[in-house]
Simulated assay, not measured.
Amino acid sequence: MSLPSILLIGMAMSTDAFAAALGKGAAMQRPRLPDALRAGLTFGVIEGLTPLLGWLAGVAAARYIKAWDHWIAFGVLALLGLHMVWHGIRPDEADIPPRHRGFWGMALLALGTSIDAMAVGVSLAFLEVNIALVALVIGLCTLVMVTTGILLGRVLGAVTGKRAELLGGLVMIGIGAAILYEHLGGAA
């Protein structure tokens, strides 16, 4: 997998965390840089670990489904992308996270936004990819996006977060289609 694809995955995986951070930043009273960095670090570590867990599960199952791996990768990425697009376009104010206080509330919110990264890890187990690099990029992108999202939250609010999630979903669908095209083109 190329570095631009890895960066796109990192950015796409961090958009839902960015949307949550915008909502959290909007709910906070004048978020400060140390608060934003603490939230970014919490989200980044959790978002970086979950693709590793997914990858381990995928590696365990890989030998059983090797002939279909590119279809599985495409299906998982396309479904995640469609889910992100759906959340990006539906007008549901219940998606705006409630005000969380403390580490555990932040960690639960981070875990909730990182389930898709675990599924991406599963799909990456079927491809030639350096999972440590992918996990690091996802974690770093999330750190930056959440820190920025917290600080921008008061100004931009949840509307921008919805658009970021929509864009991230479209990127995931595009990456899934590119994987499928590459494997089908290579097989011909």
Rank of each mutant, 00 (worst) to 15 (best):
A39L: 12
T42P: 03
T42N: 10
G44I: 11
V45D: 11
P51W: 01
L53M: 12
G54P: 05
W55Q: 04
A57K: 08
A57I: 14
A61Y: 09
Y64N: 15
Y64C: 07
A67N: 15
H70Q: 09
I72C: 05
I72L: 14
L77W: 00
L80Q: 01
G81F: 00
R90A: 08
D92T: 06
I96K: 11
H100A: 09
R101D: 13
L109N: 02
A110T: 08
A110M: 06
S114K: 08
I115M: 14
I115H: 09
A117H: 11
V122W: 00
V122D: 03
S123V: 01
E128A: 13
E128Q: 15
E128W: 08
I131D: 01
G139L: 06
L143N: 07
L143T: 12
L143E: 04
V144C: 09
V146Q: 01
T148H: 08
G149T: 08
G149L: 05
I150Y: 01
I150G: 00
R154S: 13
R154L: 11
R154I: 06
L156V: 14
G157S: 13
A158M: 15
A158P: 14
V159K: 15
T160N: 07
G161R: 06
K162V: 03
K162N: 10
R163W: 13
A164M: 12
L170W: 04
L170A: 11
G174R: 03
G174A: 14
A178D: 15
I179S: 00
Y181H: 14
Y181Q: 12
Y181L: 11
